[in-house]
């Protein structure tokens, strides 16, 4: 769990890795985000081929007060980073040009076959598994 700049996220998006990268954008204030976090935690626990990164868009000065307690209370063991850059317009398109900026949003990248999928909506139970499957050949 740490506070990072955009370059750290860019590393995850661009560096070749053996695992399918599942990157979820959320915040403690976002109710639909909180609702789907258990699905990502479950994916993290059950699928070794996947690396889940939960990117918090809470404010950096609230990391200890809001994000850390949330992670502890909910027993989240997937990677959690807080992206500390509120000049949103400078980086949203770099995640995906189709992203309006609304959260929750999720990016899945399989570096091994170059497949990538971005979704801007709250996922139903089982949906993230289907997306991972879709990107695995």
């Amino acid at each position: 769990m740490e506070v990072v700049k955009f370059e750290a996220l860019q590393d995850i998006m661009e560096t070749n890795s053996e695992k399918v990268e599942v990157i979820n954008f959320w915040a403690t204030w976002c109710k639909p985000c909180i609702a789907e976090i258990p699905y990502f935690q479950k994916l993290h626990e059950t699928n070794d081929e996947v690396r889940v990164t939960l990117v918090s868009l809470d404010f950096a000065d609230e990391f200890q007060k809001k994000v850390m307690p949330f992670v502890e209370k909910n027993g989240i063991s997937a990677d959690v980073i807080l992206l500390d850059n509120i000049d949103y317009n400078s980086w949203i398109d770099k995640v995906d040009p189709s992203w309006s900026g609304a959260i929750p949003a999720t990016l899945v990248i399989n570096h091994k076959n170059g497949k990538r999928k971005f979704v801007e909506k709250e996922l139903e139970e089982g949906e993230i598994e289907s997306i991972v499957m879709e990107l695995t050949d």
């Binding site: 868009l57 509120i86 317009n89 949203i92 900026g101 959260i103 929750p104 801007e120």
Partner: peptide, 9 residues
């Protein structure tokens, strides 16, 4: 045009 983090409709 610009983009910002916000809540879904």
């Amino acid at each position: 045009s610009t983009k910002a983090i916000g809540c879904t409709i």
